[in-house]
Simulated scan of single mutants.
Amino acid sequence: MEDDGDDWLAADKLEHLLACFAIAILVAALAGRSRHAFLRRRSVALGSIAALVAGAGKEAGDEIGLWHSAGASSKDAAADLLGVLLAAVFLSISRRFWPSSRREIEVAAEDSIV
């Protein structure tokens, strides 16, 4: 089976992971500060979707030749997904320790009592 230089431990995979992690965190943070409760409640999902769309767009661009690349890579997509999953875990844990709204503070206080 030929690998075509698309190693799992290549710097490119780390770049995909970090880029999707950063996009997910940034979009979730922006949505979490929205004045619209609908966006605040879904901030992690919105961040995750934005990062996955960016990753898919990058892979589509690779496939059609927009960038100097060997084409789309399932390993790049896996690194994108891992970055999004790590961001979702980070955001979930950070909400537990640093609630951003009064309601989240009340829920955290209730949870610590029980």
Rank of each mutant, 00 (worst) to 15 (best):
L66G: 06
A51Y: 03
R33N: 13
A72M: 06
V27L: 04
W98C: 09
A56W: 09
G61S: 07
A60Q: 07
A72P: 05
E110G: 13
D3K: 08
A51Q: 08
S100I: 14
L82C: 12
D3E: 04
D3T: 11
L14P: 01
S73F: 06
A87I: 01
S112C: 12
D6W: 05
R40G: 05
D4I: 06
G55A: 02
G47M: 09
F21H: 09
D6K: 15
G61C: 10
A87S: 10
R102E: 12
H36P: 01
F97R: 13
W67V: 14
G71T: 07
S43K: 02
K58F: 13
L52E: 03
I93Q: 10
L52R: 02
L26C: 10
G5E: 09
L91N: 08
A50F: 14
R42M: 04
G5S: 10
G5C: 07
E59S: 12
L52I: 07
G71S: 06
V53Y: 05
L86V: 12
A22N: 04
S92A: 09
W98N: 12
D62R: 00
A54E: 04
I113K: 15
D12Q: 06
D62C: 08
L18A: 14
A108P: 00
L30I: 14
W67K: 01
L86D: 02
E106K: 10
I105F: 08
I105Y: 09
